[in-house]
Design a protein around this nucleic acid. Structure first.
Lengths: 331, 331
DNA sequence: TTCATATTAGGAACCGGTTCCATTTAAGGA
DNA sequence: TCCTTAAATGGAACCGGTTCCTAATATGAA
């Protein structure tokens, strides 16, 4: 591997001149030619460590993600990555396997590695997170959770919840099981439910019960089975698509047909909800677009441009076969 | 951020002594104490760029992946990542969005960034790949494709194909559509088919036709529709789970019931094949375990230990509802 | 006590860039 | 033609570590 000094010697100039050439300083035409020639001959390319050492900063955005094997994560990462590439930044992924402790470690580790900025695909913001973000002097952007102290990009969980509530009511459903998750997850556990509740409160005669389960399919399946036995809802409104899939599995094993005997909705817009049969009605979020937007934001922050503190990403209700129109049913 | 010089001053020693302390050289007891104390006070942690600049090497394994949003990719990445962490290495992901050109770029870029080793989740090995690997002096490991010049870890596509063939025949199917992919993908397009063919050749009276489609679900759905019209197979043996999902969609829209009117099998063992109803019979590969194994291999190569050139990862046939037992059907 | 040999510690060079500063050269104005 | 000013270039210091070499100190054997 050749160094800047090799180029300098080959071109017969000082290495400072080569450096200036590379970084757009003032260099004469004749010298430019010689340096270009030397670089072409050797295939020289600067050592990024030497550059970062001096600059005390990289052009890398560290991205902390709780898991790699989720539709939301991978789509978001793809969006971030593609947009960063366009802006000549790199993305470095740290997968924490849903360990909050590893999240904290990653923050410090990214700071130590002189990342230009940090994006956190957040599930829960603890005091430790806040302390870590404040002690490292690196720009930070949260995705998926909102926090007053930091820049964040969230999905419109509240309005998605509201729209889903309206949708379900308009289809004629009144006996509803809302299958949510822990309230420690503000976006998924609180906001979606609040939006949904608001829609419910606007009509009378609703029999709605609220339940809580975990994020994974088997847990949701188990919960659904119990709820079906005790409450016999006409519809499950699930806080995530995975939970909806759990409900689907439960209904298969109970011999309940969808949507005739039981309707189901989800949140997320995961690919799988459209692949399976019946397709699941869901509130689709635009993860990839959100990732792209996040990339632009963090680069804005890195370059100390003015960036809105809170950005809200859109959603869309996708109608599929898992919900029937009760008003159109033959009597 | 404090530097090694700050620590040296605080402890009243030379910075070379601090460096020796950090790297396990000979340091007296009293000095050790002082340095420990200074490090604790400042929270010092070495600048990785300065270290890498001198060492001309990092402890990072660059991993090139054609896409992030596939079950196989994400599981493999998780396996690599977890194992590397255990061995005190880091993983850096480069997503190429299925562009071969970007794959080549990534190889050179990783070399330039002094990666200790490179793992490529390969789909196709071109001359450009070979040239790139040979010109950078970095250890390389291929996953998913085999090449005589490089170390590789592959799934046992041939035997999985054979086992799937045997399975299908044992269930009594004889009118079979094999829905494969391009032969440029040796593992998926050639090996699986060859294994399957071998099984077929062992029995008489088989009516098997071979088709080719793309990797994505809509394309597979389209192909399946045509094949159903022209050939009316009793079963689709699909080269990937995604293709099997396409067949499923096609049969829904054609009003064909699975497995009564048409059976389907896949390869891969994607989560979704077990979530949906009917579940898809598939040859499951152990992506995460393969990733872990790959991590151990590349680290072995980096440390110039002797590593087998070719490793074959296991598979398992998972029986689900998408295939019937024709021999047990009532007449 | 003296000499040989380990241990321990410090100083300086080096890794490969960037940047500041001083000097030379060229160009333009008077 | 001479002087001022701008452009082009080289030299040296610096970023924060590691490592080699040498010197000082301690240890143990004779």
């Amino acid at each position: 591997m050749s160094t800047i000094l090799d180029i300098a010697k080959l071109a017969g100039v000082a290495k400072s001149t080569v450096s200036r050439y590379l970084n757009g300083g003032s260099v004469g035409e004749a010298t430019k030619k010689k340096i270009e020639q030397a670089i072409k001959e050797t295939g020289y390319s600067p050592n990024p460590f030497a550059q970062s050492l001096k600059a005390k900063k990289t052009n890398i955005i560290g991205t902390i993600v709780p898991r790699l094997d989720s539709y939301a994560s991978s789509q978001t990462l793809i969006g971030i990555d593609e947009q960063l590439k366009k802006m000549n930044y790199q993305m470095l992924i740290s997968n924490t396997s849903q360990s909050l402790e590893r999240e904290i470690e990653s923050i410090y580790s990214f700071a130590n590695q002189k990342m230009a900025g940090i994006i956190l695909l957040a599930t829960e913001i603890t005091d430790q997170h806040i302390q870590a973000f404040e002690s490292v002097k690196v720009p930070v952007l949260l995705i998926g959770q909102e926090h007053e102290d930091f820049h964040s990009l969230i999905h419109d969980d509240f309005h998605a919840g509201y729209a889903m509530g309206r949708y379900v009511l308009e289809k004629g459903y009144r006996k509803i099981a809302y299958l949510g998750v822990t309230e420690r997850d503000i976006s998924v556990g609180v906001k979606r439910k609040q939006g949904f509740k608001k829609a419910i409160q606007e009509v009378a005669d609703c029999d709605v019960r609220f339940y809580e389960t975990l994020f994974n399919i088997p847990a949701a399946q188990e919960s659904a089975k119990e709820i079906i036995d005790e409450f016999q809802p006409a519809i499950f409104v699930c806080a995530t698509d995975n939970i909806a899939l759990g409900v689907l599995k439960a209904s298969y094993s109970e011999g309940i047909t969808i949507p005739e005997d039981l309707a189901v909705t989800g949140f997320g817009g995961y690919d799988v909800t459209g692949i399976i049969h019946p397709g699941i009605t869901t509130a689709k979020f635009f993860y990839k677009e959100a990732g792209e937007s996040a990339a632009r934001h963090i680069v804005g922050l890195v370059n100390e441009r003015n960036v809105e503190k809170l950005t809200v990403s859109k959603f869309e209700i996708i109608e599929r076969e898992s919900v029937d129109n009760l008003f159109k049913r033959p009597l």
